[in-house]
Amino acid sequence: MSLSLAENMAAPGGALRRGATARLLGWMGDRTMLVSGLVLMALILLFCFLGGLVYPASPVAIHGHHAFQPPSGAFPLGTDQIGRDELARLIQGGFTTMVVAIPAALLTFAIGLIYGLASALLPAWVDKVLMRVLDAFLALPGLVVLIFFASLLAPSNTELILLLGLTSWPGLARLVRNEAISQRGRDFVLATRQFGGGTWYVARVHLLRVMAPILVVNFTFLLGDSVLALSGLSFLGLGVKPPMTSWGGLLQTGLNLIALNPWWMIFPSAIMIFASIVATNLIGQGILARLGEGR
C-alpha cells in the first residue's frame, strides 16, 4: 500500500501529524482489511446480542391486521406473512445463528486441532492410521452428512452445534497436521527435544505458539463457514426449529414467497449472512496479508 489512511488524512491539515490519533489511524491504515473486518464483525455481534435491548419488540407476537406489510414506522423492516415483526425476528435470528455458529466453530476447531497435533506428534504408525481415517472423512461431503443426521434427529440447538462440529473438522485437522509437521523439524523444537522436552510440552509451548496466527486465521474462516452451513441447513428446512428462527430460516421464508417478491423479507437476512461471512474473511485475510509481509 503506497499511501496509508493516516497519511491521506493527516497530510492536508497537518494537525493530526504525530498525534496519538494519527498513530492509531496509521496502524489501522496499514490493516484496512483486518480493521474493517473487525469493525463489521463487532457491529454484527452488537446487533445480535444487544439489539433486543434497543428494540424490545417480540419476535413471535402475531399482528394479524398487519400481516405481510413492507417497512413502516411501526414495523421498521415490515412484517412476515402471518404478521410477525421482521426486525425483531432478524435480531432473534441473529442471536440464534451466533449462539449456534460460534460454539460449533469452537468445537470444530478443538477437534481439528487435537486430531492434527496428535497426527503430527505421535509415533509414525499412529499418524498413518489417523491419516487414512482422515482421508475417508475428507471424502465425505460435510454438509451432506449434516443433512443426513439433521433429517434424522430433528436437532435442538445443542444438537446442531454438535452436528456442525462433528462434521466440519477434517479440513482443519489436515491443515494443522501439515503445519505442525513443517514446524516440528525446526531447530528450536529439536533443541527442546534434546533437552528432554516431552511431546505434550513441545505441542503446548512451541507448536501452538508458532502456529497461533495461522490458527486464528482458520478459526475466523471456520466461523464464516459455520454461519454459511447453518444457513444452508435452515434453507433446506433442517435448521433451527420454529417459532425460533435463524437468518437462514428467515431467508428461506422470504424466498418461498418469491413470486410475491417480498424484498423486505429477503434482503435483510441475506445481507446479514453475507456481511458475517465477509467480516470473518476480511479478518482472516487481513491477518494473512500481515503475515505475508512479516516474512
Partner: peptide, 22 residues
C-alpha cells in the same frame, strides 16, 4: 471473489429465478 464466496448459493439461485425467470 470474496463477495461470490460470501453469498449463499441458494440466495443467488433464487435471485436468478426472480430476475431471469419471473
Amino acid at each position: 471473489q470474496l463477495a461470490a464466496y460470501a453469498l449463499p448459493t441458494f440466495f443467488v439461485g433464487t435471485m436468478f429465478i426472480l430476475y431471469f425467470g419471473v
